[in-house]
Each structure stands twice: as structure tokens, then as C-alpha cells.
Design a protein around this nucleic acid. Structure first.
Lengths: 184, 184
DNA sequence: GTCTATAAAGCGATAGAC
DNA sequence: GTCTATCGCTTTATAGAC
């Protein structure tokens, strides 16, 4: 009988979806084995530290994705406005236009914050800093750039809350387009 | 030995703090009895429907508070700008300047959304509608008023996420003041 | 690397005495 | 209205065969 041998890196995105769907406390081993298709034995082979290590790996994976697709373009695109445009495109794509929720935001609001404080804090801090730097390169003064960056990143998180509350992604896309305009 | 007899209405705010601190799944009966100082027997006497009924009572309690202190001033203050100012004051007070998280937002992002969809959806819908109406009374056209209301309510939710992620309430108060200015 | 079996603890909820 | 004792189930995590 043929069988597929998994790697740790294959499991992380699947774990991310389980944590996103149920939260940290709600992501039971039963749901994790269902979502990954692996038995407990395999899961604990990859993550001997249990759920904490799984969630940590997921947060690291998300951090890397944002670094590559959002923070780096913001910091390094020679045309600052193009980097900002890339950010909005990447965000719309990543959150599936508002259907998918931000796991870092979920962890920030929940009791998991303290446990994962370092990664959660750094994610937003890096995002705001990268956007502020791009806005400054685009010609704004430092204080305005920082305020706008804080507002835009917060607005994206807030729009995800509203979209999920209303079960309607339109509010997320409308918010994204309004902020695209404000930052242009 | 003297002992205090509790009423259902005394317990609801304490339950709110437990749900806020641990989320719905994380709010175990053990934490609930610790947070309320009541045994399981008393808790189930007040809420025979268990945790679902407790959370529902908490959401209703929050809804009533916002209706009284936020939505009504927005809709009925003869000076629209004064109603909007009252909203920002009430919000800063309610969320303890960003130290306290929005339970409705937590439920919206988590797996609890579907279970409490009606209350969660209505909370934000009513808030946005009341603010948009006040902005329109203040002289904005309908489309602008709605867009601004959506942005402001989303910004408040997003700022709570950022404040808790950074463990720093300043970002919440800064956001509130910027939006107070934008809506003035 | 994968699985099943199992342990020990915690879970939500109920029953019944007071 | 409050409590303790208890039920049955699920939880995380481990052990050990393959």
C-alpha cells in the first residue's frame, strides 16, 4: 500500500488553518489530526513540544510570508508607492479578500497573547515600521508617516473583524480601497 | 456565618471579564467559578443553558451598555458633533483606554462567531448605522458618512488589536484622537 | 515516520442534600 | 440559592509496536 511520508514543513500551513478556524484553545488534537490527516504520533514526532510548538511554528511561518511579500517590498521597492501598492495586493490575496481572518490578530486578542507575546508584538511592529518608512520615502514627514502607517495597519485588522462579524467580505475590500487612496 | 446571596445580574459583569480574559473556549467552568466566586451549582441555577447562555447574557449586557452610552447619544443628541464626542469619550472609558479588549470583536474573530452571529452582527451594524446617521446630520453626504463610520468603527477595533499586541495602550488613545479629529 | 492503545487530568453538566 | 459529589466524555500527552 502506497503511503505519503510527510515533512514538518508540509504540516505547518495545515496547522495554520486549524488554528485560524478554531483558535488556539479550540484547536484540539482531534481537530488537528483531522485537519492534517496525520495521527497523534506523527504530530508529536514533528512537534514534541505539543500545541505550543505547533502554534509557534505557524506564527513563524506567517511572519516569514509577510516579511517576503509585504515588508521587503515596502522597504526595498525603489518606487515607494509601488511597494505600498504591492502591500495592498498581497494583503487582499492573503486574507482571501476578507474571508480569512488574521491569526496573529486572533492571538493578540485572546489569552494566547502572553504565551506568544514576542512574535505577536514583532509582527505588527515590523509591519507598521516598514509602511511608515515607505510613506516617508514617498515624501511624508516622519510623524505623519508613522500615524498613517499605524492607522492603515489597524484599519486592516479592524476591517477583518467587521467582515467576519457581518459575514460579508465587502467591508474589507472597501476599507482596503479607501486606504489605498489615502496613502497614495 | 454571613453569606451574600447573588443575583443573576451581579454575575453577568464578572462573567464578561472571564470571557474577555480567556475567550469562550478558554473560559472553563473552573475559571468561571473562580472569577465569580460561585460554585457550579449556583452558576447553573442562573444559567441552566450552560456556557452558551452565559455568553449570550454577557453579549446582551454589552449591547445594552453601548445602546445607552453610545448609540442613543449618536442618534439623539441635538448637536451631532456632541454625540460623536460622547461616543469617543464612552469608548475610551469602556475599553479602559485600550487595556480592555472588545469581547464582541473576540467572538467575531473566533469560532464562536457562528453561534452568536446575530448579536455579534447587530452590534457592529447598529454602531456603524448610528455613527453614519450622526455624521449625516452633521452635514456630510450619505455615502461619505457611511464610509467614515465604517472606517472609524473598524479603526477602533483594529486599535484594540494593536494595543493588546504591543501591550501598550498609547496606540489606542492616539488612534481615538486622530479619528476624533477626522470626524469633527 | 506512522500508527494504536492508554494514561492522567480536565472538561461541561447533573443530582441531590442543605 | 448554594454547595459537594459524581457522571461520562474529551482533553493533552506518552509508550511502544511496526
Amino acid at each position: 500500500m502506497a503511503r505519503v511520508i510527510a515533512e514538518r514543513s508540509d504540516v505547518v500551513p495545515q496547522l495554520a488553518e486549524v488554528f485560524r478556524a478554531y483558535g488556539f484553545e479550540g484547536a484540539s488534537l482531534a481537530r488537528i489530526t483531522a485537519g492534517t490527516g496525520l495521527g497523534k504520533g506523527s504530530i508529536y514526532h514533528f512537534f514534541p513540544g505539543g500545541k505550543d510548538e505547533m502554534a509557534d511554528a505557524v506564527l513563524e511561518h506567517i511572519g516569514l510570508w509577510f516579511r517576503e511579500h509585504v515588508f521587503v517590498p515596502l522597504r526595498e521597492d525603489p518606487v515607494a508607492a509601488a511597494g505600498i501598492g504591492a502591500m495592498f495586493d498581497a494583503v487582499a490575496r492573503y486574507f482571501l479578500s476578507g474571508r480569512k481572518v488574521c491569526l496573529v490578530g486572533v492571538f493578540a486578542l485572546g489569552g494566547e497573547r502572553d504565551r506568544f507575546a514576542a512574535r505577536v508584538g514583532r509582527y505588527f511592529q515590523d509591519w507598521i515600521a516598514a509602511l511608515a518608512q515607505a510613506l516617508e520615502r514617498g515624501g511624508r514627514d516622519g510623524a505623519t508617516a508613522l500615524a498613517l502607517a499605524e492607522d492603515a495597519v489597524g484599519a486592516i485588522q479592524g476591517a477583518l473583524v467587521l467582515a467576519r462579524a457581518a459575514d460579508n467580505t465587502d467591508v474589507f475590500m472597501r476599507t482596503l480601497e479607501r486606504w489605498r487612496g489615502r496613502l497614495a
